[in-house]
């Protein structure tokens, strides 16, 4: 019973973060903040949801000698968690890098100092995806 409640809490929390990631993807102003929302939100929510699934599966283990296939499912789910934890942030990083390389500028709030030119060693090429900062 406790395990069920815990798993439901985890899955619902994961869905909340999924929702946040989707909203951020739609609403954020530029490539990098959208990337940030999608990457972080997706990673955490997938983590939570799949951990919830794993907990839900553990419920079914009463006698390990008989129920070991369930344990196998749990281990597979945990393996998925580990792989997503490794690969999803990496792909986010690679995408953000590619955007930077391609010359996409982040949106800077008006009035804030733009530090980009200081540590920016890339060759800037104006492109269509490179709008004027707000």
């Amino acid at each position: 019973m406790i395990l069920t409640i815990l798993s439901v809490i985890l899955i619902v929390a994961g869905l909340v973060f999924f929702f946040g990631a989707a909203v951020g993807l739609m609403r954020f102003p530029d490539f990098y903040s959208r990337m940030h929302a999608a990457g972080k939100g997706d990673t955490l929510s997938t983590l939570l949801v799949i951990s919830g699934f794993a907990l839900y599966q553990i419920r079914g283990i009463h006698d390990l000698s008989h129920d070991w296939p369930v344990l196998l499912v749990v281990l597979k789910l945990l393996a998925i968690v580990v792989f997503i934890y490794l690969t999803s942030p990496t792909s986010t990083s690679a995408l953000a890098d590619a955007g930077w390389e391609d010359g996409i500028d982040p949106v800077i709030e008006p009035g804030r100092e733009n530090h980009l030119e200081d540590d920016c060693r890339r060759k800037k090429t104006p492109t269509a995806q490179n709008p004027e900062p707000l």
């Binding site: 490794l86 690969t87 990496t90 990083s93 690679a94 890098d97």
Partner: peptide, 8 residues
């Protein structure tokens, strides 16, 4: 920057 992707 590259080391993250390469290591993963």
């Amino acid at each position: 920057h590259r080391i993250i992707v390469a290591t993963t």
